[in-house]
Design a binder for these strands. Structure first.
Length: 291
DNA sequence: CATTTCACCTGGTGGC
DNA sequence: TGCCACCAGGTGAAAT
């Protein structure tokens, strides 16, 4: 379900709600799929840890965690006042939502919906839940010092500059849509925002990356950033059941120009939107506005 | 090596 | 109502 704007919305929401909170006990169901770290290890490792911050990188949500409270802290004479904020994390919990994953902060006695794979009791009395019907999501625990800190595989689409962006695609030889979906190039763009970005840039999805001009690539970079930023402002796209940490839907789906608008008139020129299959994904574009 | 296809899952929708 | 084919926000492994 979630691409960069949805993941950003969820990460911000979760951050606001659970920062400075603490994990108590964790329950993980035994289905093997969503757990990169074995469930028992993960539950044990998370228990007692302070949540310093929650943020997004690419399509991943990263929880920066402090040590368990019951482990006596090695002084830290400096820091003085805002110890909690300045404290550097010594572990991370990395959540990838896959297609249908959700992270919810709930009341402990709110009904447990089907496909709830993780329940994390919080010191504040609430619960953080991970729900994922298709089980494409992934949960991973990293102990910093033993494991390396998480780094997104590709460049950050919101901040990448013109040169780096052009270089990234110019040396490839595949359809631009396929390149946009490759997380090792850009981290965070998925099927919706690839289609919407290409529409705004006026580029056909099948155009090969190495045949795009520098001008076209720059148009694409700007278009992608505008689309992603506007989507973040609107809380993401709720295509079917996407909801943020509060259970609220986003509104960017109302702004879609091509995604899942097959046969409907183009918002700019009234030509019916086409749907093709590319890189194994449904791909939507306007044959007149996009060249 | 780069690029493409497919498998991994469950659920919703629309046609018959 | 039931059955079935098809579609879905993602990704990594296997095939080409």
């Amino acid at each position: 379900m979630p691409e960069l704007p949805e993941v950003e919305t969820i990460a911000r929401g979760v951050h606001k709600r659970v920062r400075h909170d603490r994990f108590l006990q964790a329950w993980f169901c035994s289905l093997p799929q969503p757990f990169k770290t074995p469930t028992s290890k993960q539950a044990k490792a998370l228990a007692g840890r302070t949540i310093l911050a929650v943020h997004r990188t690419g399509k991943h949500i990263v929880f920066e965690l402090g040590p368990s409270e019951d482990v006596p802290r090695k002084l830290a004479p400096d820091a003085g006042q805002r110890a909690g904020d300045r404290q550097s994390p010594d572990a991370q919990w990395i959540v990838h939502l896959g297609m249908t994953g959700r992270l919810l902060v709930t009341d402990p006695d709110s009904p447990v919906v089907p496909h709830t794979h993780a329940r994390l009791e919080l010191a504040s009395g609430r619960e953080l839940r991970f729900v994922d019907p298709r089980r494409f999501g992934r949960l991973e625990f990293r102990e910093l010092g033993r494991d390396v800190a998480f780094v997104a595989p590709g460049a950050e689409p919101l901040t990448i500059g013109p040169m780096e962006f052009a270089a990234l695609f110019h040396r490839r030889h595949l359809p631009i849509k396929a390149a946009l979906l490759n997380q090792e190039l850009l981290s965070g763009v998925g099927n919706i925002y690839a289609d919407e970005g290409l529409f705004q840039a006026g580029i056909r999805p099948r155009r090969r990356t190495d045949r795009l001009t520098t001008t076209e690539l720059e148009r694409l970079r700007i278009a992608l950033q505008q689309v992603l930023n506007q989507a973040i402002r609107l809380g993401g796209s709720s295509v079917s059941d996407y909801v943020d940490a509060d259970g609220k839907r986003g509104f960017f789906q109302l702004e879609h120009c091509v995604y899942q608008r097959t046969g409907e008139p183009c918002r700019r020129c009234q030509t019916p939107i086409l749907r093709i299959e590319l890189a194994g994904r449904g791909t939507h574009y306007c044959p007149r506005c996009q060249r």
